[in-house]
Design a protein around this nucleic acid. Structure first.
Lengths: 135, 135
DNA sequence: CTAGTTGCAAAGAGTTTGCATGGCG
DNA sequence: CGCCATGCAAACTCTTTGCAACTAG
């Protein structure tokens, strides 16, 4: 849990702000900022931010790297996330739909869904159309 | 894509059969079978089996290891999966509930859910009760 | 017999950690 | 000024790869 707002921390936050809702791997971020922040600082800050809940760890991008997603400080825990396997974009499901879904699962399977942790994979409208048009 | 059914491959398959629907990390499996199969063979066979579609790669267990789930050859792609964060068990959602859910998302967010890829995280009934009873 | 597989060990990739220096408040 | 955070590099963990020996068909 950080106490000082360092230059590096600010730079990292700015970087994340510019990549809201994208899935970024720790090493990818560290690499992009390598000339401004050391690798260790990136990893440490990323871990801190995750602990603070400012960042969500996805870790499911096909590799074995730590993958994070920054959501601009919004209340992400209140809406499920839809992640497109094609373009990687993540969209927040409407809370209303999410709640209905959660209740449905609770009623049918006696299972309490964690909205903040769950990411639903599939294909977004844009990519679905794209796929249809080209080969 | 393997052509021979080797002793190691059979042993690995048997191991997986005994752990259907559990989330197993590659290293965990390799370690468990270390005295019967070499690490490399485990990794190679796991990769082959995934390519053949006999195994599903989860890779989202909080660490940075390759995590797999074996489903005994069932048509897992037809039902969403619920994974308990406490005990790690994965249960198949009833297809009926899953379909309703998928349709709901499709209607509200114009997003095509991939049932085979999606894992919903939360807490199962058993663990929910457990949590309530002790401290 | 022939080619796919295994095993071992070395090489990689990514992440974590120890310690001295630097900088926020 | 004091203590946290940074940087650097070494240490680690997990995974991949090269190559000779082995074995399933």
């Amino acid at each position: 849990m950080p106490k000082y707002m360092t230059k590096q921390r600010r730079l990292l936050t700015e970087y994340l702000m510019q990549h809201v809702d994208e899935n970024l791997s720790a090493s990818q971020i560290a690499d992009a900022l390598s000339d401004q922040i050391s690798k260790s600082a990136v990893y440490r800050n990323l871990a801190d931010m995750e602990a603070e809940g400012k960042l969500h760890r996805v870790t499911s991008g096909g590799g074995r790297e730590a993958v994070y997603r920054f959501s601009g400080g919004q209340a992400c825990s209140q809406s499920l996330h839809l992640s497109c396997k094609k373009c990687g974009k993540t969209v927040h499901m409407q809370q209303q739909t999410a709640d209905a879904l959660v209740q449905s699962v609770a009623a049918n399977n006696d299972f309490t869904v964690d909205k903040g942790e769950t990411v639903i994979y599939g294909v977004c409208a844009a990519c679905r159309n794209k796929k249809a048009s080209l080969s």
